[in-house]
Amino acid sequence: MAHSTETMDGPSMARQLAARFINLKFIEILMNRLIGMIVMAFSISVLVFLLIRLVPGDPVIEMLGSQAASEELAARLRGQLGLDKSLPEQYWNWITGVMHGDFGYSYGYQRPISDLVALNMPASIQLTASALFISVALGLLIGAWAAVARNRAPDTIGMGIAITFMSIPSFWLGLLFILLFAVQLQWFPVVGGTSLAGLVLPALTLGIGTMGFNARFVRSSLISTMGQNHVMTARAKGLSRPKVFFRHVMRNSMLPVLTVVGLQLGNLLSGTVVVETVFSRPGLGRLLVDAIMAKDYLTVQACVLIIALIYALSNLLVDLMYPILDPRIARR
């Protein structure tokens, strides 16, 4: 009796086993990171909930202004806002609402916080994306220029530029840009808006401030790759310098840089707090500063939690892209 069996050669079976293992590894990484994000979000929510209440001042007094002398009115408003409850009760009411997508009501702006976030988030994303492009592009150019001319004048100049901009605080750099390009040269508006002209100076301030770190990391990554065996072999085969650099050096150096870019995304988003305030630009950072000044507890808690979650999500995406860009990582 003839049996029809489906045979599989060795390479095909190895590919299927490798694909299955990579999928399991991917799921394992995803689950670990998601659990870490949940723990991180809970910790930050508790921390910001407690810290904002240590800020001197009473939000009810801030809201009432000249009417704050009325104890009855203040007590009634405190009860409406839930500020008369114990801290555990206040936190539980807030966090359960957040888990259902409700960040609460801003008593400073007199509107739902979700509406405020939806109104200001696009401007912050626009600024962060523009600054990230400037930071990565200039960092790659200066870092590659310094690595190719290692220990020569371009290397010294490039790293000098990187260290200089790393050392300048973003608020001071922003003020210098306003003085030079907006007041003296009048190329751009003093107050940054959502237009393209109003975006240039804030994006340059935020991007150039982090460009130096990217340039230094790109330089060290490229120099490390240049000394590896496969690069020396490519040179020995007679390949041209540009072909060796772009095909063998640059491609193998970008994976570590990807991690830095993921971290920079979170840093840039948190940096919008200073830059948006300096340029009087709308955004999540400006909303956070105004909420702190107004003792608007729920708005501060929502802004900090959202920024932290975006930071964690950007790092999660980087971790998940690693096995895709370099399958060797998935097999470890």
Rank of each mutant, 00 (worst) to 15 (best):
M1G: 02
H3V: 11
T5L: 14
E6N: 06
E6Y: 11
T7G: 09
G10A: 15
M13K: 11
A14C: 10
R15T: 03
F21R: 07
L24P: 04
K25M: 10
F26C: 10
L30P: 14
M31V: 13
M31A: 03
N32M: 14
N32T: 02
N32W: 14
I35G: 02
M37H: 01
V39T: 09
M40I: 00
A41M: 13
L47H: 02
F49Y: 06
F49Q: 09
L50A: 15
L51G: 06
V55K: 09
G57Q: 04
P59K: 00
V60Q: 00
E62M: 15
S66M: 13
E72Y: 13
L73S: 04
L73D: 03
A75P: 12
R76E: 06
R78G: 13
L81W: 05
L81D: 09
G82T: 07
L83S: 11
T96V: 10
G101N: 05
S106H: 06
G108N: 00
Q110F: 15
I113E: 03
D115A: 08
L116H: 07
N120A: 11
Q126S: 02
L132P: 03
S135D: 06
S135M: 08
A137S: 09
L138S: 00
G139Q: 05
L140N: 08
A144Y: 03
A146D: 07
A147E: 12
R152C: 07
I157T: 02
I161F: 15
I163Y: 15
T164C: 09
F171M: 00
L173G: 08
L175Y: 05
L180T: 04
A182E: 01
Q186C: 05
V190M: 12
L199R: 01
A203P: 08
L204F: 10
L204S: 08
L204T: 02
L206S: 04
G207Q: 04
G209K: 03
M211Q: 07
F213Q: 14
N214L: 10
N214P: 03
A215P: 09
F217I: 06
V218S: 11
I223T: 07
M226D: 01
M226Q: 11
G227F: 04
H230S: 02
V231F: 12
A236Q: 02
P242A: 10
K243V: 10
F245Y: 15
F245S: 07
H248T: 01
V249W: 15
P256N: 07
T259C: 13
T259S: 09
N267S: 14
L268K: 00
E276L: 12
T277P: 01
P282N: 00
L287S: 07
L287V: 04
V289S: 00
V289N: 00
L298E: 05
L298C: 03
C303I: 09
V304W: 11
A312F: 12
V318A: 12
D319Q: 05
L320A: 01
I324Q: 08
D326E: 11
I329N: 04
R332M: 13
R332Q: 05
